Computed example of a mutant assay.
Amino acid sequence: MAPAERPAGAGYLTLRAGAEATGEFEDRRSRFIAQLVHVGGERDAEAFLAEVRARHHDARHNVPAWTLADGCERCSDDGEPQRTAGMPVLEVLRGAGLADVCCVVTRYFGGTLLGPGGLVRAYTAAAQAAVAAAGESGAICEMTLVVPVTVQLPYALHDRVRRLCADAGGRVADALFAEDVQLSCVFRAGEEAPFAAAVRELANGEDLCRVGEPRFAEF
C-alpha cells in the first residue's frame, strides 16, 4: 500500500510505549477482539501480529492494520473477503489521527456468515472500541516535532536564560551544574530560533546555544 500523505512536520497522536488497549464487538455469536499498541516500525508491528496470533491461535482470523509516522501503512484481510476487514480497521486508525500504531482484530467465528456489510461494521466497531478504550485510559499521547537546544552558560545568566526559555514557549528538560551551567531545553520546531537569538543578545554576541536535530516527542 502506498504511503499516506502526512504534512511535513505535522504532529500526530499515538499510544504510549508499552500500553495496550482492547475493544470487543459481537455479532451473531462471532466475537471481534481488537488489540491496539504503539509500534516503532514495521518490525514491531509484525512482531505484535505474531504475538497476537500465538495468543489467539484457535481464532479463525487475526486481521492486522498499522500506520506509521513516516507514512507507511499496511493491512490484510487475513482470509476474510477482500476489503471487508483490514481496510476498515486501517480507516479507523486514520480517522483517529493515530500513527506509529498497530491494531490486530481477532475474530472467533460464531457459525453464521455476516456478509460483506456485516464484516465491515464489525471490524470497524471493534477497532473503534479499542481506540475509545485507549483514550479513556489516558494511553493516547500527542507527538510534536521538537528541536533540542543545549545552552552552556555562566551561573550569572542561569535565571535569565530560564526565563527566556519559558517566554519562547520552551521547557528545560535537564540541567547540569558544574564549573558552569548546561541547560538542555526543548522547543516546538520553529520556536528555537528566537530563543537562540535572545540568548546571543544577552551574552553580548557570544553563541552559547547548540541546536540539535528535529525529532518527534511528547511536549
Results as ranks from 00 to 15, higher is better:
A59T: 06
Y155D: 09
Y123C: 01
G138K: 01
V120T: 10
R94H: 15
M143V: 05
P88S: 02
A156L: 07
G110R: 03
D58R: 15
A65M: 13
C141I: 14
A134G: 06
G97H: 01
A127I: 03
R74E: 04
T150D: 08
A127P: 07
A99I: 08
L119S: 09
G135R: 07
A129W: 07
C141G: 06
A96H: 03
P88V: 02
L164P: 12
T150K: 09
R94V: 07
E73M: 11
L164H: 01
V147Q: 13
L93K: 14
R121P: 04
C75M: 02
G117R: 11
A127C: 11
L98S: 06
L114G: 02
T112V: 14
A156W: 06
R121L: 10
T84F: 00
T84L: 08
V161W: 07
D78H: 03
T67G: 11
G79A: 04
L68S: 13
A125H: 02
G117A: 09
V161P: 06
V101G: 12
D70C: 12
H61G: 05
H158K: 12
H158R: 13
L113C: 08
L93D: 08
A125E: 04
Y155E: 12
E136V: 01
V63G: 11
A156F: 04
A122T: 05
V101H: 13
C102N: 11
A85I: 01
R121M: 03
I140E: 11
G79D: 04
Y123M: 00
G138F: 01
V92T: 08
V149S: 04
E73W: 12
G79E: 12
L157Q: 15
E142N: 06
E91C: 12
C75D: 09
I140P: 04
W66K: 13
A125M: 05
L93G: 08
F109T: 05
F109V: 01
E91V: 07
L90A: 10
Y155T: 10
F109S: 12
G138D: 07
R162H: 06
A132P: 08
G138E: 03
W66C: 08
A69Q: 08
E136F: 04
S137G: 06
L93M: 14
R60H: 13
V101I: 14
P116H: 13
T112S: 12
V63D: 01
A130G: 07
T144E: 15
V120H: 05
G135H: 07
R94T: 15
F109A: 01
A125D: 00
C103S: 10
E73T: 10
P148G: 09
V105G: 03
A139C: 03
D78R: 04
M143K: 15
L68C: 09
D70T: 11
G86M: 07
P64Y: 05
G117P: 10
Y108V: 10
N62H: 05
Y108G: 06
A85G: 02
G97V: 10
V101S: 15
Y108W: 10
I140L: 14
A133K: 01
Y123E: 01
V105C: 01
A59Y: 05
A133Q: 00
F109R: 11
L90Y: 09
D70K: 04
C103A: 15
P116V: 03
T124N: 02
C102H: 01
Y155V: 05
A125G: 00
